[in-house]
Write a protein that binds this DNA or RNA. Structure first.
Length: 483
RNA sequence: GGCGCCGUAGCCAAGUGGACCAAGGCGGGGGCCUGCAAAGCCCCUAUUCGUGGGUUCGAAUCCCACCGGCGCCUCCA
């Protein structure tokens, strides 16, 4: 079955096929590295990670570009404020971004270009636009003339005629544009408040690139044109992506990107998550409170990417518990797979696995309906558990491996189990020995019928953060999960 | 004012004209299992999908109105 995706360009769900058979080119707007990225930013990046993983799951090879915006108003202002260079300011945030990125199990893209490494290419693009009569210079700055670009605003479904200058543009950043709706390609002229942290030479004198320029250029220099997918947060539809299209298509005369995908924002406790309003949390904040990245990942990809996601600590607790359930499930399957009678296959597990995988794929094919995909997974969990309750260990052993493979397959897209695996807390050798000694003592007490003593030992272990579980094949222990 | 989105059980969240008399997660109640637990399983927890109309043989799903919440409208993922 083919994958269908909602394309912002057409405002419809369309069948997706890459232009180059078997190979998908995608451009995903990256972070502005003026500060630590927050959970809301990662909601978008995680949606894109699911898309990427699912494309790979479907057998495509993906070439992804994610830019790092290291020159814009915010990075410049932050650098000026601290009296540091742009690089000095952004470098730690680039590192922090990758730290969180990896902690959340987001697959690495093929390219992470920084805007400041491509300024000459940006200048060239502006020159092309000038040569084609789509740009004009005023006092060392260059603007894009939207009246010369017929399809302007199509992505955002904007009627250029009704576009009027917004309040934000009317504020402190007034430029000498012919038309208030035109946007800046190159910012030249005197900008004393910016110091000299971001100045490059250009045919129009010293200046720096406008924000939208980098994405057009980075996509054009790293991907074919047109490329398959371009994505970002909904807020980028206008003006950012609208202007990216105008720049790239204006300069080349060719279509820029085929599919445009936009993720809705995450709210924090029902309110917009944003830096400027101080309403945000970072992964670090959550980890300091004892939450694990796997739970954060689970929550952030629990719902459809085109639906708003309300991030709450309650939701995070729920997410953590559902990850626990999956971990328990896998542990149980692994134990079953390691059991006796490895060649016997007489359970319903293979059928359940096949059906789960089919439902999983059907769900994701439908514009990445991940909520339904989770549903398919959890139905699988319940049914397999029931089958395991019914069948003996000898009967289930071989089939358990089939089920395990299906689970791993689904997790190649969801990425939660793989992540949780790496989070298992290290138990120091000394403590491990103590725990094992206590568990053995308890087993002995139980064998002797001394349940009072057995329960006392269990209490002792619980107080030390260890839970004991008695199974037909002996007692097992594990670290207690957090509240 | 323009463009657009959402309102489904205690919470989160699929479903968007009948083929499921509404998936799944979390929580809650009851039961099985267990020495007791834990884990797991079984049953129950929305006769109903913001409200009111309408279309239709049939609507959570389409149309209209209203109520409530939210996003964008020039450098926010």
């Amino acid at each position: 079955m083919p994958l269908r995706l909602y394309n912002t360009l057409s405002r419809r769900v369309e069948e997706f096929r890459p232009l180059d058979d078997g190979r998908v080119s995608m451009y995903t707007c990256g972070p502005t590295v003026y500060d630590r990225a927050h959970i809301g930013n990662f909601r978008t990046f995680l949606s894109e990670d699911v898309l990427r993983r699912y494309l790979e799951w479907k057998g495509y090879r993906v070439v992804q570009v994610r830019n790092l915006t290291d020159v814009d108003d915010r990075t410049i202002h932050a650098a000026v404020e601290r009296g540091s260079s742009l690089r000095e300011l952004t470098e730690p945030f680039v590192e922090a971004f990758f730290t969180d990125h990896d902690r959340l199990g987001i697959e690495r893209a093929e390219h992470y270009p920084r805007a400041t490494d491509f300024v000459p290419e940006m200048v060239q693009l502006v020159q092309k636009l000038e040569a084609r009569g789509l740009a004009y210079e005023v006092d060392g700055s260059v603007y894009f003339d939207i009246s010369k670009f017929p399809g302007y605003g199509q992505l955002a479904q904007l009627d250029p005629g009704s576009l009027k200058e917004g309040e934000r543009a009317a504020g402190d950043e007034a430029y000498e544009r012919d038309d208030a709706r035109d946007f800046v390609l190159w910012k030249g002229g005197d900008r004393p408040e910016e110091g000299d942290v971001a100045t490059w030479d250009s045919p129009w004198g010293p200046g720096r690139p406008g924000w939208h320029l980098e994405c057009s250029v980075l996509a054009l220099t790293h991907l074919p044109q047109p490329f398959d997918l371009h994505s970002g947060g909904v807020d980028l539809i206008f003006p950012h992506h609208t202007n990216e299209i105008a720049q790239a298509e204006g300069a080349t005369g060719k279509p820029f990107a085929r599919f445009w995908l936009h993720a809705k924002h995450a709210l924090l406790d029902g309110r917009k998550m944003s830096k400027s309003e101080g309403n945000y949390v970072t992964l670090d904040d959550l980890m300091e409170r004892g939450y694990k990245p796997s739970a954060v990942r689970r929550l952030l990809i629990s719902g459809h990417y085109r639906m708003e996601l309300n991030f709450t600590l309650t939701g995070l607790d729920d997410a953590a518990r559902s990850v626990e359930r999956l971990l328990e499930f896998r542990r149980r399957l692994e134990a079953a797979a390691a059991g006796e009678g490895k060649d016997l296959s007489s359970t319903a597990l293979p059928e359940l696995a096949a059906r789960a995988l089919k439902d999983f794929e059907l769900a994701l094919d439908d514009d990445l309906n991940i909520a339904e995909a989770w549903g398919a997974l959890f139905v699988f969990v319940r049914e397999v558990n029931a089958e395991l309750d019914r069948a003996g260990p000898a009967e289930a052993a071989a089939d358990a491996r089939t089920a395990l493979a299906a689970l791993a397959s689904m997790d190649r897209v969801l990425g939660v189990l793989a992540l949780a695996e790496g989070e298992a807390a290290e138990v120091p050798e000394e403590k491990r020995r103590w725990i094992e000694e206590r568990v053995a003592a308890r087993t002995a007490a139980r064998a002797g019928g001394d349940y009072g003593r057995a329960d006392a030992i269990r209490e002792e272990l619980v107080a030390a953060g260890v839970e004991v579980e008695d199974t037909p094949s002996g007692s097992r222990w594990r670290l207690a999960r957090r509240g």
